[in-house]
Design a protein around this nucleic acid. Structure first.
Lengths: 227, 227
DNA sequence: AAACGTAATTATGAATTCATAATTCAGTCA
DNA sequence: TGACTGAATTATGAATTCATAATTACGTTT
């Protein structure tokens, strides 16, 4: 261990970026809504300064939209945005898959296998919450396994935007089964350390997810998504 | 034209993000240096509040590093960082190439061809400044031509990090000639609207650029780059 | 009653102030 | 001389204040 490592104390605005991002991603702050600066300051017990700093960062990530003299609004999840976001995140996942295959330890792969099994169990039990959690754990582990902080940070930003979209549609049984099947194939490639193969699958997996979202949103366009 | 479009007025902190980013990218603020908050406030004629907001954004882009209670420093350009950044930006360029082939108008392609010719002329004249400018114009035009704002914004962030690296090494004649040749091929693919082909070339082009940087930095490691 | 105009209120961006952490510098002692 | 201690200074994070833009509330007019 490196004893000279800088000690990390979180500053208020860093905390706030995290907390606010969660509020947006977890849909506590709804798309299009105004961000209630005053209320948030009170409930977090901070002044406006650090909160506003955090909002600037969130704006640069595209989670909120700032209008001069009219404050911040939670960015809407539009079909157009998803159309733009998914291809980009798909490329990043492809790269992550390739790198993870090369950089993960055997133990790391075993760990992911375990999570994969948990996810399969959740699918069989039709436990959506557990499924989402395990699914996200797997993707995060693969991204981390790529050992590339730039990739990781950009993926995190995009994933936040995409993750919000799940509140707009239901996961169809059909797509659910397909996703599980795709993950099954991904595990095969990972165990075989087929970098190209895993990368390709992860890219396709993401684009299939996109297609499912578009289909669900188009079928039931009464959600928040508008062109 | 959409007459109901929101009018856009820049706020101070937005201006500052731009200006500061330029200072960092153009090497006016050197890697590792402390960001002189006070001086910058004076020379920009603003108070610390908007400047600090801007620094938070730049930090989220990775151009500066914040340490609690010890202010901001310009992020160093390390070999490790480039090793992480280039593969990511290469993937984005690949996607951009594919999309640009599909979305650019004939006029748009002609425009890029013109810039390409200007770049070739600059190469023949050994005019580095004009070359860099034309080169950047071409890449920007291709990114814009992809018509994907998400892709564009993430590319911009990464390009800023990479662009700083050019101050650390000299462009070798050998690499310069190779880059021109690569651009020649790219133009061919673009004119033929071979999306896959252009994407592939742009990815490779970026990775070759990376290799050249590594070679130059390793040969003359007395620059600012340290592991 | 609906539409308009104006005053009151609120929210926002930015400057300023304040408390505290980090740094510098002077003095002390080995 | 040179390392250490602690006070003075400076820089930083965050709260507060201030000027102004945006919104709301209220009268007025038709």
């Amino acid at each position: 261990m490196n004893l000279t490592e800088a000690i990390k104390r979180p500053t208020l605005h860093e905390e706030l970026v995290e907390r606010l991002r969660n509020l947006v991603v977890e849909d506590a702050l709804k798309p299009g809504e105004k961000v209630p600066e005053k209320d948030l300051c009170e409930s977090f017990g901070v002044s406006r300064t650090p909160l506003r700093e955090a909002l600037k960062v969130l704006a640069s990530e595209g989670l909120v939209v700032l209008q001069a003299n009219r404050g911040a609004r939670v960015a809407k999840v539009t079909l157009e945005e998803l159309e733009n976001t998914f291809p980009v995140i798909a490329m990043l996942e492809q790269l992550a898959g390739e790198l993870a295959c090369r950089n993960l330890s055997d133990a790391g792969i075993a760990q992911i296998q375990k999570r994969h099994d948990a996810m399969t169990k959740a699918f069989v039990a039709r436990d959506r919450k557990a499924y989402f959690q395990a699914n996200q754990d797997i993707h995060n582990a693969l991204i981390e396994g790529a050992r590339n902080e730039i990739l990781e940070s950009h993926h995190r930003m995009l994933a936040a935007r995409v993750r919000r979209a799940r509140f707009m549609v239901n996961l169809s049984d059909e797509r659910w089964a397909q996703a599980i099947e795709e993950h099954e194939q991904m595990m095969e490639k990972l165990r075989a350390r087929d970098a190209e193969g895993l990368g390709q699958l992860m890219k396709t997996h993401m684009m299939n997810k996109y297609a499912a979202h578009v289909k669900a949103m188009t079928d039931a366009p009464d959600g928040a998504a508008q062109r």
